[in-house]
Simulated scan of single mutants.
Amino acid sequence: MDLSIILMGAGILVIIVSLFMSRSKTMDADTEDISVTLYKETSQIKRRLKVIEEELLLEQPTFKVPSSKPTTSGIHQILVSQVLALHKQGYTISQIVERSSLTPQQIEKIIATGGKLL
């Protein structure tokens, strides 16, 4: 009788251990799948970010080196270049006013003349 109880206990123990082993293998496989998926998604995000950075670098406006003398109306050439660049980028006059120290009338005049002979 003692031997049969020991064998039954050992059998139950083996069954319990086998259940944990199969779950452990399943968890390892799931962890590996998640790891591979995370690696793929991270690499996709890095590629997309690189493309966006390249697009932003290409779209930056190029500015000529402005002369250091102010124009005839007292508006510095740097401000004129900035206003024209912002206008080309699609900013409204009110948005340009917020970004510069000029009045709406001065900005309209710069845009109308293209920055020449102010």
Rank of each mutant, 00 (worst) to 15 (best):
Q77M: 09
L38T: 10
I34K: 03
S81W: 07
L49R: 12
T26A: 05
T103A: 03
R23M: 11
H76S: 03
I45S: 02
L3Y: 13
I78R: 00
K40M: 13
P66L: 05
L49T: 14
K64G: 02
E53N: 11
I111R: 00
I6K: 03
T31I: 12
D30F: 14
P61S: 08
S4A: 12
L86C: 07
R48W: 15
I75D: 02
L117C: 07
D28S: 12
G74C: 06
L13P: 00
P70T: 04
Q89Y: 15
S73T: 13
L84P: 04
Q60S: 07
E55G: 04
T92K: 09
E32S: 07
T103W: 08
S18A: 06
G90Q: 04
S68A: 08
V17F: 12
G74Q: 07
P66K: 05
T62P: 00
T26L: 08
S67F: 12
T92V: 04
T92D: 04
I52S: 04
L13Q: 05
T37L: 10
Q44T: 12
P70E: 06
L7V: 15
K109E: 07
I96W: 02
G74R: 04
L19T: 05
G11Y: 09
T26C: 03
S24R: 08
L56N: 07
Q105P: 01
K46A: 11
P66T: 10
Q106I: 02
G115Y: 01
P104W: 06
P104A: 00
P66F: 11
L3T: 10
I110H: 01
Q105K: 09
S68I: 15
T92G: 01
V65M: 08
K69E: 11
V51C: 05
A112I: 15
S43G: 05
